[in-house]
Computed example of a mutant assay.
Amino acid sequence: MNTDVAARLGGWQQAWRLAAAAALGIPFWFSIAVVLPPGCVADTCSWFVTGDPLIAVGCLAALLWRRRFPFTVALTIAVVSAASALATGAALLALCSLATRRRPVEIGIVVLAYVTAAQFAAELYPIRTLPAPIWLQVALPALSAGIAVATGVAIDARRAEVRSLRDRADSAEREQAARAAQAQAMERNRIAREMHDVLAHRISLVAMQAGVLDHRGDLAAEENRTLIRGIADGSRQALEELRDVLGVLRADPDRPEPPQPTLDRIPELVADARSSGLDVTLTTTVTGTPPETVGRTGYRVVQEGLTNAAKHAPAADVHISVAGKPGDGLHISIRNSPAAAATTRPPASGFGLLGLAERITLAGGSLDHHPTPDHGYVLAAQLPWPRHDHGKSA
């Protein structure tokens, strides 16, 4: 459809340019007619009403090939137009079209041929006027040729400017699309990392519960049922979270981002850990609501600490301390007591603490983790909480 439209537009442009060339030659033709002697047309000036228009029609027809053979067509019409006043418009259009190529040698040859041929045009008709100075006979055709050349050069400059603007617009559009795609990919990856932390925590709890069932033969029936329900619920939630991760990576850009947890969801983490068999103690002394980034990062610190405790020390006591206020920062500590390592551990990616350290660094905080003298382990994080923040809620 676009090709058909372009072809129709090209045909209309060709037609109106030929019509303009024909119309431009009419004033030159009439300027000859008004100075011819009375009765000349029917007698000695029959060429004026027969040959002159026929040559003009031939020149207009030759213009159809001016884009394929620009120099040849322009030179031919410039020479032939000396025998036809009506073909002057065609000669000027051919010269204008040639000038759009910006080749000085070709333009100079055609201009010279046009000006030279114009000196012989007056010999075709018995015009009775005072002889004009030679400079005027040269200046008039040279002026008209100069106007045609200047018009052609201006047209080409305008075309080049339009092409440049179009290229810049296309380039800007491509760059904008690339930036948008990159931003979408980065956002999807960020969301996937957030959900990966949740999934890793969930699977660690399931693995810990399964390990308890495997190594504890002295549990009561109700305790066994509780652990089995916990494994079933945790597995189901893990599958749902995995589906969410895959959905984010597969990527509808218009898909809304799932809500991200903050400090107010830490009690839920502790409750899940307790239901899985961990002995967790939580102490919270937080005044106000921290910024969204700080709250979300603090939640991830507690989540990673509980995940590592479930993996490496499932029978240990875990003590969580969360304290902070505006201007003093947010301080989080997860400490587990010494405990025998689990006989069977779930596979670990090895990037949990590395990713957490990167997250905290981006938030402007610091992370410390190391064994304690009593063979336990501590994970501590400090996050900035500006005093001027007005407690933007997550």
Results as ranks from 00 to 15, higher is better:
A94P: 06
D218H: 10
P267M: 08
N2R: 13
L54H: 04
V318Q: 10
P346L: 12
H201D: 10
A181P: 09
S276V: 09
L54I: 12
T281D: 15
D43S: 15
E187C: 00
H390N: 12
L24P: 00
G365H: 08
A381E: 02
G51Q: 00
G230Y: 03
R102V: 04
T284E: 07
S321G: 02
R225Q: 13
G11S: 11
Y114P: 04
P290F: 09
R166P: 02
D214L: 15
A74Y: 07
R255K: 10
V34H: 03
G305L: 01
A142C: 09
V294S: 10
T116N: 00
T344E: 13
G51M: 01
P259E: 14
G365I: 10
A15P: 03
H370K: 06
E241D: 11
D368A: 13
T307D: 14
E222Q: 09
T343D: 14
R193V: 12
E123G: 08
P261V: 06
T3Q: 12
I55V: 15
A15R: 12
E268P: 01
S366P: 03
G277D: 03
R296L: 01
F120K: 01
G277R: 01
D252V: 01
P126A: 11
T281H: 14
A381I: 02
E257P: 00
T284P: 00
L367D: 01
R359H: 00
D4N: 06
Q176I: 05
P338K: 10
T3N: 11
A160P: 01
S366H: 11
T100Q: 15
P347R: 11
I127H: 08
V302S: 11
L219F: 07
C96A: 14
L205F: 09
S97N: 11
P256C: 10
F48G: 00
F69P: 00
A316V: 13
A42D: 12
G89T: 04
A323C: 01
V294T: 15
V49I: 09
P256Y: 08
A221C: 01
W29G: 05
G364R: 04
A122F: 11
S366E: 12
A339R: 10
Q209F: 00
R193C: 04
G10S: 05
G146T: 02
V162K: 07
L383V: 05
R265E: 15
V80I: 15
A177M: 12
L353Q: 09
E268A: 11
L143D: 04
P290Y: 10
I107S: 10
A85I: 00
